[in-house]
Amino acid sequence: MTKVKNVVIAGLGGQGVLKASDILADAAFRAGFDVKKSELHGMSQRGGSVSSDVRFGDRVLSPMVPPGEADVLLVLEETQIEINRPTLKPGGVLIGPDVLNAAALKNKKSLNVALLGAVSTVLDIPEEQWLAAMYANLAEKLHTINEQAFALGRSAAIERKAADQ
C-alpha cells in the first residue's frame, strides 16, 4: 500500500478555502486515487478561521489529517500560518500566500486557485486532472482567469524551487 498523502488547506471564511479543497479532492479523484476530504462548515461564512483536509492514496481511512501528519500545508492568509503549523509533519511542505506575487493576479479572488498551482508542483497528480477539476468546480465565466492564476502559481513555485537548489 502506498502511503496516503495528507494536505491541509487553511485560511479565513470567504477566501475560497473550501473551493480549493474541492478542486484538489476532485483532481485526486480524477487521477484514480481513493480520496477523502473533510472540513467543518457552519460559521466559516462569517469570516472566521477555516480549514479543510484532503487525503488521497490507495486506501484512505479517517477523513481527517491527524495533527503533525500533513505532508503539505497550504495557507491562504498570512495570519493563519502559525495556528495551522502544528498540522504539518516534520519536513512537510508549507506553502503560504507569499510564494507568488499576488499583485500579478488579475482577480484577487483567484488566489486560492493560484496557490493550488503552487501545490500542484509537490503532488503526484497530472496537470490535466487539475485543470479538469478546476473546470468542473468553477462557473464557466471564471475558467480563463483561474487558468491564468493556476499557471502563475505553478510557475512561481517552480522558479522558487529552482532558485532554492
Binding site: 479565513l12 471564511g13 462569517r46 469570516g47 472566521g48 478561521s49 502559525e82 495556528i83 502544528p86
Partner: peptide, 9 residues
Amino acid sequence: PPKGKPPEL
C-alpha cells in the same frame, strides 16, 4: 489546538 479567528457579523 491554537485558537483561530472567531466569526463575526
